[in-house]
Write a protein that binds this DNA or RNA. Structure first.
Lengths: 332, 332
DNA sequence: AAACCTAATGTATACGTTTGCGCAACGTGA
DNA sequence: TCACGTTGCGCAAACGTATACATTAGGTTT
């Protein structure tokens, strides 16, 4: 077992002070003579001393760990948001502990293990875990919900997306160009995000007296979009396909190409998530995009406030990124 | 401050045993009467007791934390590998601590903070951080290098990729179909992965008496592939573009489309990384793909062995995933 | 000059585990 | 019966830090 550096007691001896002074030199708001602090810090640097976060946390019951409960980091929709959030946390000297739930047989077990590390906060990014389970298991950690799951009066902080306006604008632009037959390709059944996205489009269409068929269910993957797209386009001939996410939307686009349908002339396609790759020239997908920077700012901010403050609720409006898959933006 | 559950001492009192017995009930290999263990575990379950990992680590100097030093989780090439590795770690009851280095101003600072958590292992996934820096900062943690950076005799475990055979096979297949003019679009300058990938292709071409121009430098992004692709294809007319990664390759493909070049008739394109999206029907990119599952297995295995065993070196051969971007596989 | 306040530091305990050591109880073999 | 090994468990000392409280030195007020 390699020997780790010195302890605060050993450094104290070297500096001719007590270990309490070492501790104070490292905590910003302590009453300590500036010169003493500098001297200690210099000596610490010289000897490579760094306080032990385990011992610190054990004592003051703050780990500065944040558990991020996600489905997977392999999916760009989650990855792009996560990356920003992780940066925000790192800037504030917090450490993210990642829990990938997607293919894990026992998510509760996973959360139980993570909770033994005394995480200060839990961000529920995944819509695959129940909020109540997470809260129960993570007990003393303050939860922040970012999964769009309904709160039902639960006393937790929450950041969620609203794409009602964006959905309505897209419907408006398409209807004005004569599109009439809208269909929806949904994601996983259990997903609340999906239900909401669908509901907003349904409402926007309803407001214009138009119907709305849910023609197929995918699982958020490109492959499912492709497969369901082929099946669906052989059955029905819609003007517009709204997809629960970008990956499926691109799958549908490729399915359309396979069947000889032109996008956007024969079929307009709309996605959700605004992942970077949807904007690539080969896809140029019109998509409803959360302002990721604002979302991660909000999450980081809430984490910084809690558990001192009351739970915070934030609703953030999504934007539209127009692409060629709908033929035009609102203006042309 | 919400009250966390009980401590081992409190549970001990409830069970009529000492806290040592509680501890032993939770550590698999301790001498404790099976019935006692069951009784303790049942009581722990009932009262929601879970041992405090901070206190445990402080005492036995094992945190079961693994620092994963990566560039970003937003990029699928890293994300897809990471996701597997995280799962392997979680299965073994280890917790990943993610450090996203890409846009971080001070990576050393980031690693210093992470090191205070007494991580047992560090996986160097990013090629942006110096191995020596990481080793120095993470002192007592056992490092595992997965960034393809040259080891230069350093005493660390290492898992790296070898695509020499794959490169040679691709060159062979293309040359036999009459392709002559190969060019290479490189990634970031500082990247060792890039240097290696280029060298393997250079060697394969050299073996057939063919030259090899590095025509442009990108930065691994789609955008850079697109931009450099347009500039390059206006200047030279190669048969084949080998790209340092898939994202740039797709950028080049879109650039070719913009300039009216047909892929693969006028131009064959080859990528590296084998990200899932390169296989989408709209791209169908021929790419050199690390066997991700094998890589993460190797990493997890090494982590499980070290620091007990000597450093382990593993070289894993990449495979080829043929797509339409080269017109054909080796057989047709 | 006494009384008092403040700033800077030391002392000692607590945080919740793990683990070496010791002890009792219980066979087992001679 | 005695010596001895084994099993199961309690005792108490760590692990490395933070912090309430005590202490000291110096300055200010009256």
């Amino acid at each position: 077992m390699r020997r780790k550096g010195l302890t605060s007691v050993e450094l104290a001896k070297l500096a001719g002070v007590s270990s309490a002074t070492i501790s104070r030199a490292f905590s910003a708001d302590s009453r300590i003579k500036p010169e003493t602090r500098e001297r200690v810090l210099a000596l610490a640097e010289e000897h490579g001393f760094r306080p032990n976060a385990m011992a610190r946390s054990l004592n003051n019951r703050q780990s500065r760990l944040v558990a991020l409960v996600v489905n997977t980091v392999a999916n760009p929709a989650e990855g792009e948001g996560l990356d920003l959030l992780i940066h925000r946390l790192q800037e504030r000297e917090r450490m993210p502990l990642i829990l990938c739930c997607a293919d894990h047989k026992d998510r509760s077990q996973l959360m139980r293990i993570a909770s033994t590390y005394q995480v200060d906060h839990v961000v529920l990014y995944s819509d695959q875990v129940s909020i109540d389970d997470a809260i129960r298991i993570f007990r003393s950690a303050t939860p922040v919900v970012a999964s769009s799951e309904p709160l039902n009066g639960r006393d937790v902080s929450d950041v969620r997306l609203d794409s009602s306006v964006a959905s309505a604008q897209i419907v408006e632009a398409l209807v004005e160009r004569g599109r009439k037959h809208f269909v929806y390709l949904s994601g996983r059944d259990s997903s609340h995000v999906d239900k909401q996205r669908m509901a907003w489009f349904a409402k926007a269409l309803d407001a214009r007296g138009l119907g709305f068929d849910v023609v197929a269910h995918g699982d958020y993957s490109y492959e499912s979009g492709y497969k369901e797209g082929v099946l669906m386009l052989r059955r029905v001939r819609p003007d517009v396909v709204i997809c629960a996410n970008d990956l499926m939307a691109i799958g549908v686009k490729d399915a359309a190409a396979l069947l000889g349908l032109r996008v956007p002339e024969d079929l307009a396609i709309v996605g959700h998530d605004g992942v970077a790759l949807a904007n690539w020239d080969s896809h140029s997908l019109t998509t409803i995009m959360p302002p990721r920077s604002a979302v991660s700012d909000a999450l980081a901010e809430i984490i910084e406030l809690s558990p001192t403050s009351d739970p915070v609720r934030r609703v953030i409006a999504c934007e539209i990124r127009w692409g060629r898959s709908t033929g035009h933006g609102p203006g042309d």
